[in-house]
């Protein structure tokens, strides 16, 4: 600060100083904003360029895609939220345009496949299917050398289905994530049975009674409900009837190949 003057002239001087400060501040602000604008447009064009030049990688390389998604998350951009966000704000189409639609298209196409798999298997699993199984099924129908996908991709794809209504959602039971294509809630007992079935692939009445300390009637009801919804299959060729989760078919096959 300048030395405090005395006398009337000091008023003038302080007014001039503050005006100068103000104009200097304006200058700074405007240079900042222009440089920010340049930075943003550079960033925008770079991201666009990046998405365009790497569109193929984004589609074909799951690691690259995951990294790209992580990068977008780090800078506060959700490449999917843009187009699935309702209302069509400017920001919405902005990212969709910027990414050339390649990322969106990838997930939308994947979502179509997920819907197909869920529809095809609904009869055998009651509309409840493990994410891993969906992935394996989609991979098995792909061409040789087709783009690899991950479970993470599938979950994102399911997310894009949200605006279509609530019928597709994810559900975590135990440490397994399922995709549910029939809007139906599982009650806690049913979830417990499903979780128990993840261990060995199946449950029996006595397993539930011993491990969960349930009375027979309670175990019976939960199992019957799940069988009635096609979520469990019964195997009667054993000492005690076993109730299997159809998702376990995959693992059973892997064991068979290993054995």
């Amino acid at each position: 600060m300048s030395r405090k003057g005395v006398g009337l002239a000091a008023f003038d001087r302080s007014r001039i100083t503050s005006a100068q400060y103000a104009s200097h501040g304006n200058n700074l602000r405007s240079t900042h904003s222009t440089s920010l604008a340049t930075q943003l447009s550079v960033f925008r064009s770079l991201l666009q360029q990046f998405a365009q030049t790497h569109a193929k990688d984004i589609r074909s390389n799951p690691n690259f895609r995951a990294e790209f998604a992580r990068m977008c998350a780090a800078i506060g951009v959700d490449p999917l939220a843009s187009s699935s966000g309702a209302g069509g704000k400017d920001g919405g189409s902005f990212w969709a345009q910027m990414l050339g639609g390649s990322v969106n298209d990838f997930y939308f196409e994947l979502a179509v496949r997920v819907v197909e798999v869920c529809g095809n298997t609904r009869e055998e699993n009651g509309g409840l299917i493990g994410v891993k199984e969906v992935k394996d099924r989609i991979m098995s129908t792909r061409m040789e050398g087709g783009a690899e996908i991950t479970e993470d991709d599938i979950l994102r794809a399911v997310g894009t289905l949200k605006p279509l209504g609530s019928s597709y959602s994810t559900l975590t039971v135990g440490h397994k994530i399922y995709i549910r294509s029939i809007p139906k809630e599982l009650n806690t007992d049913q979830s417990s049975v499903l979780e128990a079935a993840q261990l060995l692939g199946y449950v029996t009445l006595s397993m539930l009674m011993v491990n969960l300390r349930w009375p027979r009637a309670r175990a019976r009801t939960a199992i019957d409900d799940l069988v009635g919804e096609s979520i469990l299959w019964v195997d009667k060729q054993c000492e005690e009837w076993e109730y299997w989760n159809p998702g376990f078919m995959l693992e059973a096959e892997e064991n068979a190949n290993a054995g």
């Binding site: 009869e123 055998e124 199946y202 069988v227 009635g228 919804e229 096609s230 299959w233 019964v234 195997d235 009667k236 060729q237 054993c238 076993e242 299997w244 159809p246 376990f248 078919m249 995959l250 059973a252 096959e253 064991n255 068979a256």
Partner: peptide, 23 residues
């Protein structure tokens, strides 16, 4: 893979499940 799923060899009591099984 269904061939290695034990319940595949038991007739499923539930109608839609059985239909899937038949297919």
């Amino acid at each position: 893979r269904d061939y290695y799923f034990p319940p595949f060899f038991t007739r499923q009591p539930q109608r839609t499940t059985f239909h899937a099984q038949c297919q």
